[in-house]
Design a binder for these strands. Structure first.
Lengths: 291, 291
DNA sequence: CTTAACCATCACTCTGAATGATGGTTTTCT
DNA sequence: AGAAAACCATCATTCAGAGTGATGGTTAAG
């Protein structure tokens, strides 16, 4: 039972005649006859009574007709959906680090959704390492990750420059006399974690312990409670609920700035949904990045 | 875009691999490759990224997938609906005279619907002549009509024997001094109307005028109001709201009984819906008919 | 009584679905 | 490092079935 057969079936049922259906479909009459017969064989039951003049639906035909029309309409919708996905609408799956998703994306996503409400937008969060792997595996249309990615299949573009700061509890006003040797960070794979480890080592704070947490709030909450130190974008800390219980410490200038890049596979399809998303994101990102 | 192609597409999308889909479908791998390529050509856009190991959906493929699964499910439903229409469920379209529909069918229909709630039941009313024509034209699966139908394509079966009575307003106690020459009846084509004309002629009541009405209540209401005389099954008159304002007069014995036959085309499909309907109708009709 | 409309059947062509074999690439296992 | 396994693309080939055009039989309309 193929869609083309159902199309012929519907035409015959609607015109009430094989000949007229053939004319409407621009087929030869014998072909319409044959395909209806084939469909009847396939379903194991007659669909039409053959009258002296024209045809009439059998009970089985009556049962099939509404399904046939629904199937044809749905198939048409599907075709349009595929067409649209190459055009404006469709779906867009982007990855982002927790920190980017928390403070940089909300306004972009809101604007984008307002401008293109038909796009089915999904944001996946994860560590930069995970996001890169997923983008390479075509699971993501693209992702915001920390730091440059050098890979022949990946193309990237700078979107934000985050100023990184050490974050401690409020009472710790200087890092020189760092009372704890515990660092808090996201799980392995986070771009900032690698830098945090490097920086702590340069401060002579080794060996140290790294505790892993899954969310921004968990990390900063624990830091505020005096559990340890972490490295975060200033922008993120300034917007957290714990900001009054935290103290920010500058990072040496050469390691203070961390770029957030948007990456995607070079061979990923250039959908309009993606292009418009990037255009809008560039517009909204640039003043922040430069400021 | 045919259903078979969508089935292959879904299998590939679900297994994440052309080879595995081929194994599941019991096809050869090269065929699955070719049909996916054909589908992509057909839709004008790639549906899968080809990875080193396996494949991944493109945005267009993501857009198509939910439609494809819906289409396949719906097609399956359609197949079952057609199958069922040959079995128990399905639709049943029966015709009946107004009088039969009013007093004989309700209990049958109620019982039938209770026993087979999945059957989509339709009752079409009309004159016997109209119903016969529609049954011959395959528009009805069968019909209850007045009197025997002799036609090579029609088979019939006796269901009810109606006792016909003349009906006049209450004050007219004898037909001998019939004060009016007006008869009321359904429109031309009604089985009882022919008999009414015949009987009136035999009573010497010619010329007379026949007024046509569309419903039972209209006719009996007008008779009650003294407009004229009509011929109706006793059973119908006894159940009308006007019964107290009417007087019933016997009809000569040789013309008093009118059979109600169920007719259908000999070549109409023997659906289970129809067979079970007739079985139930026979059971419910026989005591009434004999009593 | 002719004409037109309708459906079934047949012989034929040709598209495209399916097979099987081959080659290239990558991953996995030893 | 080398062998084996998994995966996809391509090609030549076979075969089913979609579509054509012609014909014949039947019925309704003129």
């Amino acid at each position: 039972m193929e869609l083309s057969a159902l199309g012929i079936f519907v035409a015959v049922a609607e015109t009430g005649s094989i000949s007229q259906a053939a004319r409407r479909l621009e087929y030869v009459q014998s072909n319409v006859t044959a395909r209806i017969q084939h469909l009847e064989d396939n379903l194991g039951t007659p669909l039409f009574y053959r009258k002296k003049r024209g045809i009439a639906l059998t009970p089985a035909g009556r049962a099939l007709l509404p399904y046939a029309t629904r199937l044809l309409r749905l198939a048409d919708e599907a075709r349009h959906a595929v067409e649209d996905s190459a055009q404006g609408q469709g779906s867009l799956i982007v990855g982002a680090m927790e920190t980017t998703a928390a403070v940089r994306l909300p306004s972009i996503l809101a604007h984008y959704h307002q401008a293109y409400p038909d796009v089915d937008l999904t944001v996946v969060t994860g560590t930069s390492e995970e996001l890169i792997a997923q983008a390479l595996d075509y699971c993501l249309d693209g992702a915001f990750v920390g730091g440059s990615v050098v890979h022949p299949d990946i193309e990237q573009e700078l979107f934000f420059e985050e100023e990184l700061v050490f974050v401690t509890e409020r009472r710790v006003t200087t890092l020189d006399a760092l009372p704890q040797r515990t660092a808090l960070s996201f799980r392995q794979g986070c771009a900032y974690r690698a830098r945090l480890e490097h920086l702590l080592r340069s401060y002579g704070i080794v060996p140290y312990k790294i505790m892993e947490f899954g969310t921004i709030e968990a990390i900063l909450g624990c830091v505020a409670a005096g559990m340890g130190i972490t490295l975060f974008p200033r922008f993120v800390v300034e917007r957290t609920a714990y900001r009054d219980q935290l103290c920010l410490h500058p990072v040496p200038a050469d390691l203070a700035l961390a770029p957030t890049m948007f990456i995607r596979r070079r061979d990923a399809l250039r959908t309009r949904a993606m292009e418009t998303f990037l255009e809008l994101a560039r517009r909204l990102a640039s003043p922040t990045a430069s400021g």
